[in-house]
């Protein structure tokens, strides 16, 4: 009895080790491909950054009112391009690594599924990143412009714009990942419509006095300015 148990354990252990041994070359191939692309990406990003700095890319991109620097204030344009190159290579490294894993391990089910889904994940991550950056930038722009226009509901506008962009981004990300597509479409429609309706009701009913006071103040100020000659000159 004990011999049979022992034999059975040995045989299952042997099968497990065999499976692991079959996977090892694939894992090794994945690591080698990933490290290789990591190194190439790092070198190329450094090279691209140096070349762009030499040709004065930052100065050229910083001309004008709306530049790359406005969207990414902490990084110079050349650093931004360098990072994009690096991350492109890193993503390519993961893809090639997965292919190498498939070739090395003869386990095509996992790699096939991963390979098919990786572009969606990458795309969704990019969408999420872009949506967040856009939401932050646009909401801050709306807030500052609103304050400079003396709108007392500038913050409300800014928050509304931010959430509209975030909700839109969330829906796009889920759609891109092919997760609950019909529910997402329906949910997004209801949510987006709800936000617009809620804002309309808020302005129409709840904030009616606030908006009318603000508009009245603007109108009366315009009339006052017409009646009184401008006495303050900023420049």
């Amino acid at each position: 009895m004990w011999d049979q148990v022992k034999q059975s354990l040995q045989s299952s252990m042997g099968r497990a080790m065999e499976s692991l041994a079959r996977l090892l070359p694939g894992i090794l191939a994945f690591i080698v491909a990933f490290l290789l692309f990591l190194f190439i990406g790092w070198v190329l990003a450094w090279l691209v950054r140096r070349i762009l700095m030499v040709v004065g890319f930052d100065e050229r991109m910083n001309h004008g009112a709306h530049t790359i620097a406005e969207w990414s204030p902490r990084l110079t344009p050349s650093q931004l391009v360098g990072r994009i190159v690096f991350w492109c290579f890193l993503t390519a490294g993961v893809m090639v690594g997965v292919s190498a894993f498939e070739a090395g391990s003869s386990e095509s089910v996992v790699s096939g599924w991963i390979l098919g889904y990786v572009p969606r994940i990458v795309g969704a991550a990019l969408l999420l990143l872009a949506g967040n950056v856009l939401a932050r930038y646009v909401s801050r722009s709306v807030l500052i412009a609103g304050v400079n226009l003396n709108l007392s509901y500038a913050r409300l506008l800014s928050v509304g714009v931010r959430w509209m962009i975030l909700v839109l981004t969330g829906a796009m990300v889920l759609d891109h990942l092919a997760l609950g597509s019909e529910i997402v479409e329906l949910g997004f429609g209801i949510l987006f419509g709800g936000i617009v309706l809620a804002l309309a009701l808020a302005v129409g009913l709840g904030s009616r006095d606030l908006v009318s006071r603000s508009l009245e103040r603007e109108a009366s100020r315009a009339i006052e300015e017409q009646q009184q000659p401008e006495r303050i000159h900023h420049f």
Partner: peptide, 25 residues
């Protein structure tokens, strides 16, 4: 230092400047 977007930075200066103008006037 590009702490924030330069367009935002300069936009945010306007109310402070108007505060100074009110004080000066």
């Amino acid at each position: 230092l590009r702490t924030i977007s330069r367009a935002h930075l300069l936009g945010a200066l306007t109310p402070l400047y108007l505060g100074w103008v009110a004080s000066w006037a």
